[in-house]
């Protein structure tokens, strides 16, 4: 019986051998990663402003940080909550493509981030 318990503990630890962030830490880390694209996202907005100087709005993006790889996947703008034009939504989600955590978490992270654009 004791052997069974030990094996269960080992299995439990082996299944989650990556960093285990708290929800808050996960959010902070994700924010750091997406913030590396601030310049690209600003460029998206500036492009919009060139054609419409009064353009403003929000883009709400949902994505998953994959456990073990740390890659951002399933990146999609939420059309119901986003008020910015679709072209800006697409530009923002495109800017987030390919982002990856240096140190993945042992859990997936289901994230929702909002960008507010003001001219």
């Amino acid at each position: 019986m004791r052997k069974s318990i030990a094996a269960l503990i080992v299995l439990s630890l082996a299944g989650c051998s990556f960093i285990a962030r708290s929800t808050e830490d996960y959010k902070i880390e994700t924010r750091k990663v997406v913030s590396t694209q601030d310049g690209a996202i600003k460029a998206c907005y500036d492009t919009q402003l060139a054609s419409n100087p009064s353009q403003s709005g929000t883009v709400v993006v949902k994505f998953t940080v994959e456990k073990k790889t740390g890659v951002l996947s399933n990146i999609a703008a939420d059309p119901n909550e986003s008020t910015a034009p679709e072209s800006l939504q697409q530009c923002v989600t495109g800017a987030l493509e390919g982002l990856k955590f240096d140190k993945p978490d042992r859990r997936d992270g289901d994230a929702t981030f909002t960008w507010v654009f003001k001219g």
Binding site: R31, T58, T112, F117, K118, G119
Partner: peptide
């Protein structure tokens, strides 16, 4: 290994 679900309450402001 359950997913962490979080939403960044502070919107990221982009000034164009």
């Amino acid at each position: 290994c359950g997913p962490r679900v979080f939403s960044d309450g502070d919107a990221l402001a982009i000034l164009g």
